[in-house]
Design a protein around this nucleic acid. Structure first.
Lengths: 224, 224
DNA sequence: TGTATACGTGAACAATTGTCCATTGTCAAG
DNA sequence: CTTGACAATGGACAATTGTTCACGTATACA
């Protein structure tokens, strides 16, 4: 189907297809559940009638140096990833980002497993997309009320705000009547700037001075 | 109103020093070895004469919602990261969290500056509120289309999905017709579960099998 | 004073789980 | 044809491991 996974499959190692299936499941189980499967869980997954079928594969995988185990101990695996990591465009300084794969299509491949090839990008939360700053100059506001519903920002949402000067059209955290609220910042050339609520039931215009705007909203985070 | 958006700021009761030690060791063991410790391994570490000492602590940690276990199964832990553990043997590698203050009211202070006193909590992007996992078990989906607009999820949003079994009412990433979509998972007691689109112009019901649900949506992140 | 929580010992039990025995079959290579 | 790698069955055993009961201490609290 997609050549990415095919290439990876063949470059990997001299594992058989079945062994690769087993290995995939083990990895996937840990990824999904946070702990490794027991041999009988693997057995069930593949409808083996005997645990020894699993044992055979595990021995093979260990012999081929794909995995490592601690004999006698339950659910103790270690996966050896000596397939070549591709050149990464990601910043080497891992401390700067929280790195989350963006998966666009996980339909292909082993149905119960997310193929690496399904990844269409990475979400680097602190920098690229959301403006999260390590310097902690950014902050999050929890939205109360519905003054921004027309901008799809709702009660309870967290809005990440970066303190800086706004530009026309930015959603800003603004200090109005002693309260911090979210408004849209409007500044047409030659005219004085003003703020605007994104809810048609609210007054449109708000006065503004140089202490009003506290920062620019960079992202919305909503827990579900 | 809904407790979900209040996040888990105060849901975890305070751990005792001893409980924190235990928790730290469990985390550290997994970090170092790649799998969770057994109860007797914890016992040895702390020189307990009885496994029941460990059991007591584990029960307490579970009661306080710090960990999760699967009864009867070996080495199956799940750590709930509600806050940053202060006592930790683990390296304070900053790459693990992006730590953002949640500011409830900054009206009182100097408006161009974030007052520490205005902080009502902290948003730890990778773990607490959004289900971001440093182990990368979570993943993000970019929403295409409008099948969830009635749940305030829009085209282009990033949805953070944690792979686990859904409960009634959860928004889930579901594999339908070879495509991953967002649906609401409905399971009334005694009845077979089904999926439901949150858009009145879409068909309501979708069939479901054990490969359908890929995970539960934990958060929405939208760049502005 | 009672009661609750935290902390721990000691021993026994039962479930989970890894391991190993013998055996069957296929298939490609020598 | 034989050999070896691969795949799987079936059953049994033993180690690992989680669980529970009974019992003890200390501390804080109303």
């Amino acid at each position: 189907m997609d050549n990415c996974s095919r290439i990876q499959l063949n470059t990997m190692k001299d594992l058989t297809y079945r062994q690769r299936e087993i290995l995939s499941f083990i990895e996937h189980h840990e990824w999904r559940n946070g702990f490794w499967p027991s041999i009988r869980e693997i057995q069930e997954k593949f409808n083996f009638k005997s645990t020894n079928a699993v044992m055979g594969h595990l021995r093979a995988l260990e012999k081929k140096d794909a995995i490592e185990r601690i004999t006698g101990q339950a659910r103790t695996f270690r996966i050896h990833h000596h397939d070549t990591p591709e050149v990464s465009e990601m910043p080497k300084n891992a401390s700067e980002v929280v790195d989350i794969p963006i998966i666009g299509d996980i339909a292909a491949g082993y149905p119960d497993r997310v193929e690496p090839s399904g990844e269409i990008g990475r979400l680097q939360v602190d920098i690229a997309s959301a403006g999260f700053s390590k310097r902690n100059r950014s902050f999050a506001l929890q939205v109360r009320g519905d003054s921004m519903v027309d901008a799809e920002i709702y009660d309870g949402d967290m809005v990440v705000v970066e303190p800086r000067d706004p530009q026309d059209g930015n959603i800003v955290a603004a200090l109005i009547d002693g309260e911090t609220t979210l408004k849209r910042f409007i500044q047409k050339s030659g005219e004085p700037p003003y703020l605007k609520a994104e809810n048609k039931f609210y007054p449109e215009l708000y006065p503004i001075n140089d202490l009003t705007v506290q920062g620019v909203a960079k992202a919305v985070v909503r827990s579900i």
